[in-house]
Amino acid sequence: MKYFIGIDIGSTCAKTIVMDENKQIVHRLLQPTGWSSVDTAQAIYAKLEEMGINMKEANVVATGYGRISVPYADKCVTEITCHGRGTCFVYGSQDLTVIDIGGQDTKLISVEAGMVKDFIMNDKCSAGTGRFLEVMANTLGLRPEELCQLAAQGSGVSISSMCTVFAESEVISLIGRGEPKQNIAFAVVDSIVKKVASQAGRLTLGKTVCLTGGLCEFDYLCESLGKKLNVTVNTNPDGRYAGAIGAALSAMNVRK
């Protein structure tokens, strides 16, 4: 059996998708990227071999910021193109807008007829990214998913600083003045949503807006984002694999 493998090495997580010739997803792997994407790539290789996949025969496309650290990849494609392609596959639509909140960057991708038409990425700043959420969750002694759940019960507080470092000290002073945790959690999510929404103002949003990346399973975040953008934000359990799925689909076009 010939396999098509997409590997998305992000700043936080490495996602791997194995597809068969009929575009059926046969395996999904998820692991932390750790400090070395080269080691991560090797670990993925070993794991896939162990699962009985003939890696010499398989077509491999790597994406994500660690894409250049996958020596056995037949091709590298950027995460923008892969997320566009993968999201179309997951949601079964060729015209949509992807919002990908990743570990170190947030991207908005507008896709028309299955092709990336335009995209926006945050400039060198972690505001509105997964890292921002992670740092704030840490400060509050919560896991990111707990923070999002708690945020649903909060209200009335806002964080004005967009900078992760300054926002952290803002959160610390909120803690210091005895603000209930759920209100601070609310402010954190609200800050991410606002930042993403302001980026969205530079792109024409399509009718279908889909959230991908590690935060797409956080219902409250999707809901607030939808409210702010005045659209329905779609999510899917495969959303966090969108980049890897796009890479696996790209692998089908690789000739070896």
């Binding site: 923008i80 193109t81 038409k117 995209f119 990425m121």
Partner: peptide
């Protein structure tokens, strides 16, 4: 040089587009 990785991803993606 702190954003050179991000910038090259953007340039690459733009050209793929």
């Amino acid at each position: 040089q702190s954003d050179s990785g991000q910038l090259s991803t953007r340039m690459e993606a733009f050209l793929e587009m």
